[in-house]
Write a protein that binds this DNA or RNA. Structure first.
Lengths: 229, 229
DNA sequence: CCGGGAACCTGATATATATCATATTCTTGC
DNA sequence: GCAAGAATATGATATATATCAGGTTCCCGG
């Protein structure tokens, strides 16, 4: 259960890989592993975070409650991603809530260890910076999509994204199972609209369903839709 | 015209302030100052940037062309801000275009100098990181606003933002003069819709105009609108 | 295996916003 | 100071999407 960070393969995928042996030892000695069940939250918008969370398994949705009472999902974070980094660096309370989409296992790393390395190890700092630069680009792209694409296009794009990032099973169904409500909250639309469009895609032969599972049957048509044809 | 960075007051407002004396000297020796006239671009989406641009005067709009042919303005950058940093750090081509909203003066700093400092000076790297963390938070907030607020709310918010960040003259007109089209592109709506809503706000007594100048006459009402009343 | 609650689905209708068309007003170069 | 083009304004209409209301299906705990 509580293995050593030095051996942890997850680390290879995030900025922790730029840490020195000693730093990793420090992290490993102070970290604690937590199991988060589906639907539970890791932290909430407004929380003061005492550290960051390294995702070992499962997927988390990062969302923010709007004044109209709806939750906007800003990002999905899977294995290898580090949550709470931005807030710790900016010394602000959390701007987003992190809720488990399925059962998760995360490692909590106290912020002191991270901050210490940020001040002493330029390689690590630079690595964190590179990741954040990447996140910022993605966020900018989301802004453009949100304001310039139709709901239909955004839903099509969401499915392509889910396929690309989380894959599908042997039968061609998406591995990451999101509720229609979650998809609606990613895309920024009403749940009913989302359901309606999924039905339409099914009728058109772009998607298939089996129980709650959803699979892509016409990748190209979805892509064309996103590109505006 | 071409003054020394060591004396430049602008620097106080951005991450360059964390540079050492020697680093600043290096920047100053390699930088070049450029004048950009209103409407001209500093760089375009897709350009390979050879360095970053430190804004000494004027305001730039950072925008991205969507597949539907519309320009979405993602951010406005004024005196003290550094443009192109994200692309240089991520070693990617520019994701956004930077166009001058009014006459500008910028300093071009070759990327080698920046990258060199990023690898050697943890204070500087951390400072850049903090700025980027801040930008990322703002971007996340924009995503939520874009998808959850009405056009009317977003326009109201835009005016409050312009007042807060760029101020107003003695008569109460906004100092930063944006065209209706630009405002529409910030907010992500059609120019006609934007004009219509501005007219409505004028009729309601929230705004006043004089030629192309726009002023806020009822701050509270606009704020209430944004908050959903 | 059954009952009940949650998730999903569909229809009718309301509403916000985009689009198209045209008029008016500014602004800028000559 | 005027002509011409750009920016602003406004009306009519189309369309996408939200909202409300009532279903059906799924799935889990007992």
């Amino acid at each position: 259960m509580s293995s050593r960070c030095e051996q942890c393969i997850i680390r290879k995928f995030n900025s922790l890989r730029a840490m020195s042996k000693e730093e990793l030892k420090k992290v490993s000695d102070t970290k604690s592993t937590k199991v988060i069940k589906k639907g539970e939250s890791i932290f909430e918008e407004g929380d003061k975070l005492g550290g960051v969370y390294c995702v070992r398994d499962g997927v988390s949705k990062l969302s923010k409650l709007s004044s109209n009472g709806k939750d906007q999902i800003v990002k999905l974070a899977a294995k290898g991603e580090v949550l709470g980094q931005r807030s710790v660096i900016a010394e602000e309370t959390a701007n987003l809530s992190a809720v488990a989409v399925n059962d998760m296992e995360v490692c909590f790393i106290p912020k002191e260890v991270i901050i210490n390395s940020l001040h002493k190890n330029p390689d690590f700092t630079f690595e964190v910076l590179r990741h954040m630069a990447h996140d910022l680009r993605e966020a900018d792209d989301v802004i453009v999509n949100m304001s310039q694409k139709t709901v239909k296009q955004r839903i099509a794009e969401a499915f392509l994204y889910l396929k690309k990032n989380y894959g599908e099973d042997e039968e061609g169904f998406l591995l990451l199972k999101l509720s229609r409500e979650d998809i609606a909250n990613v895309v920024g639309t009403a749940t009913e609209s989302c359901i309606r469009i999924i039905s339409e895609f099914k009728k058109n032969g772009y998607l298939k369903t089996k129980g709650k599972k959803i699979g892509i049957t016409d990748h190209k048509k979805l892509q064309d839709l996103v590109d505006g044809f």
